[in-house]
Design a protein around this nucleic acid. Sequence first.
DNA 1: AAGGTGCGCAACCGCAGACTT
DNA 2: TAAGTCTGCGGTTGCGCACCT
Length: 259
Amino acid sequence: MGRTRRPCCSKEGLNKGAWTALEDKLLISYIKAHGEGKWRNLPKRAGLKRCGKSCRLRWLNYLRPDIKRGNISHDEEELIIRLHNLLGNRWSLIAGRLPGRTDNEIKNYWNTTLRKRAKAQASIEAPPSKSTHDIATEPPSSSQVTKAKTEVIRTRASRCSGQVMVPLQPPATQDVEDPIEQEMVEADAGTQVLDSLYSDGSHLFNFEFNELLEAGDIEFEEPFVETVVRDWTANPCLNDNVGTDLDTLAFLLDSDDWP
DNA sequence: AAGGTGCGCAACCGCAGACTT
DNA sequence: TAAGTCTGCGGTTGCGCACCT
């Protein structure tokens, strides 16, 4: 791009750091009344001394009613590991396939828990070689930097349009001599399939969530704001059973069944 | 009890694609 | 078509807490 950017908001006089309960309440009230979006103008309209980005992040990662809190289950963990092997550090895509979990949460969980475990396991199983996720998460060595010049590794998810193109066939994968390279090529092919099937990964589960909402199987308790602000853990929206049917994701645990 | 250390997590930052004018 | 703006993403930071010495 290279164009000059103005900051997302004037930084003067804005609060930073941890959010207060009052700020949360203001943000929730505003979004409940006016909906998401227009993040730049939202703080002023909502009476918040925050940057729009900060508001968006707070809402998406913490205040959204469909966020599931609590420990990551074993099934979810397995899914994260497998999806990470497939997608690399594309946290939003991974999160889109884990109902109620945010990309930030998954990223944190990976960085604090799973990466260490994966590293330890990798060193036991194959000491000299590197696993796919190590390549994706660790700073590149000088030899990797050289290699990177000849490889195309998609590290950043691209925003997708509303149109969904379902491929009739999975993208052809080229043959590569190095097994690690081959794995990465295949992983990228798999990513393309996922991206094609679910242009926005969240649709997969939002569909289920919205269906439950419409069917009346779950409902928001009123007054929503007061309930949520008073006690997050008592949030009636955080029903453990909502959208957590991980059996439906079993196909992700068996890559042989991928299209 | 006090200081040091490590860990987990919320929040910030900068980049870049998508969208609008 | 180009310039400007909005939004979303991944990487990183820093605070607070728990545990250890």
